[in-house]
């Protein structure tokens, strides 16, 4: 992979702007998913955080697809052809991160392709109001300070629903 999406949890306010950006472009498909985390400390604190596709090197969704609808391009982006998808849900079951979901209206699975039609990069990153989502070179990831700016509360507090 040349470039990947990373989530800086210190900035994420859970506004779901990225999800709307995705839905507005891909005709109400939600290719970026949300995770609901809750604290194990017993406090009633919940948080929503974006779960973008990892575009795995050894992508299980790609292997699981019985019709080779999910493919990988030269940049390492794992993408899916919505026209060819038959909605068998094999990729949804195979994804170890649970980031692929089914579109009940169109009977297909929704798979992030990092907005291959947009030169500037994914729309979710461009629209992120707080700058939590970043589209960076894989080599640059360690340079980014992520999740180290905690101020006073638990990390869960900052993303109350």
């Amino acid at each position: 992979m040349e470039k990947v999406i990373i989530v800086d949890l210190d900035y994420c306010i859970g506004c779901r702007s990225c999800e709307t950006a995705c839905a507005a472009r891909f005709f109400e498909e939600r290719r970026i998913r949300y995770g609901l985390l809750s604290s194990s400390s017993g406090l009633v604190e919940e948080t929503i955080t974006p779960l973008p596709c990892r575009h795995c090197e050894d992508a299980l969704c790609l292997k699981a697809c019985p019709f080779n609808v999910i493919r990988k391009d030269e940049k390492g982006v794992v993408f899916q052809s919505s026209f060819e998808c038959v909605g068998c849900s094999s990729c949804i079951l195979a994804c170890p991160f649970g980031v692929i979901s089914g579109n009940l209206l169109r009977h297909i699975s929704q798979k992030c392709d990092l907005c291959r039609d947009r030169k500037e990069g994914p729309r979710c990153v461009a629209s992120c109001v707080s700058g939590a989502l970043k589209y960076v070179e894989e080599k640059e990831i360690p340079k980014e300070k992520i999740g180290v700016r905690f101020i006073s509360h638990s990390p869960y507090w900052r993303r109350v629903k």
Binding site: C15, R16, S17, E19, T20, A21, A23, A24, A126, S127, C128, V129, G131
Partner: peptide
């Protein structure tokens, strides 16, 4: 940057 309202 654009919020969910703007995106919609």
């Amino acid at each position: 940057r654009l919020c969910a309202r703007g995106n919609a």
